[in-house]
């Protein structure tokens, strides 16, 4: 009986297991293989030991993505909170508006920001009407972070909105009934109950931010290149690039896994379901 159930479980899982093996595990093995070999296919640790050149790029990637994640959180939380309090119809429309940009290609979305921020872009043209000197908007760290925030905001809003909208109204009333003003109600009930959504949101924004490319190429300057851009450049433009790029990817992956583990600790202690 038990055995039978087990076999059935295995069979049911088979397609997924196969999928995971082919498209997740095998590529990972390739990454590891390239990271530990030179262009001739011989074992080497040089790729990894030479990575100190990229220390600053790593730092910058981490810094930008942490800043972008924090700002995204502070924009997304209030947005999700007030959205969850609207009538069902308003919620639907707002949800549509949040999702709408996601239907467009990331490249196009990012490219359109260059049109806005350029030296001769929309903002500077507008400022010129008032005789204000054009500002240097594009090619700055701010522009890169803005690009991250803009592109990944929906991934923060969605999980937070999901947990907030699931909180039973009568629980909030119970808090009021037991003496909570709005602030206490938020601090003691709403926030703890939404931590799992916040953690999911942070992971879903931080991970693509830290490994992002293109956004930084389009909105930043040469010196704003991030890890993702370097990986892309190495693969495209140099002969033994694949091996160094693999080493970079490996380290990046470890950083991401470590930060996810830390975030999961938070989620566990607040007893919430994780999306990632």
């Amino acid at each position: 009986m038990n055995r039978k159930a087990n076999i059935r479980q295995v069979l049911l899982n088979a397609p997924y297991t196969l999928w995971a093996a082919i498209f997740v595990v095998v590529p990972l093995l390739f990454v590891a293989y390239y990271a530990f070999t030179d262009s001739g296919g011989n074992f080497t640790l040089e790729n990894l030991s030479n990575l100190s050149r990229y220390a600053n790029v790593f730092k910058k990637s981490l810094l930008y993505s942490v800043i972008a994640t924090i700002i995204t959180l502070f924009i997304a939380y209030p947005f999700a909170y007030f959205m969850s309090k609207r009538s069902a119809n308003v919620q639907r429309v707002q949800m549509m508006l949040v999702m709408l940009p996601m239907w467009m290609n990331l490249l196009i979305r990012t490219y359109s920001w260059t049109l806005i921020l350029e030296r001769n872009g929309i903002i500077n043209n507008f400022l010129e009407l008032f005789g204000i000197e054009p500002l240097k908007l594009i090619g700055t760290p701010g522009a890169v972070i803005l690009g991250m925030i803009y592109n990944y905001l929906p991934y923060m809003i969605l999980p937070i909105y999901t947990v907030l909208s699931k909180i039973d109204v009568s629980i909030l009333e119970a808090a009021e009934d037991l003496g909570c003003n709005s602030f206490n109600k938020f601090r003691r009930v709403v926030l703890p109950l939404s931590i799992s959504g916040v953690v999911s949101g942070i992971v879903m924004v931080f991970v693509p931010s830290v490994s992002t490319f293109y956004i930084s190429q389009k909105l930043g300057s040469e010196s704003e290149w991030l890890i993702g851009d370097n990986i892309e450049y190495l693969i495209k433009s140099t002969t033994d690039g694949m091996n160094v790029a693999a080493a970079l990817s490996l380290v990046l992956m470890i950083i991401i896994l470590a930060s996810m583990a830390i975030m999961n600790r938070f989620a566990d202690s607040s007893d919430g379901g994780m999306i990632v």
Binding site: I171, E173, A174, P192, L193, D271
Partner: peptide, 10 residues
């Protein structure tokens, strides 16, 4: 005391 208790799940 609410109709469905409304205890704090957290």
């Amino acid at each position: 005391i609410f109709q469905r208790y409304a205890l704090f799940p957290n």
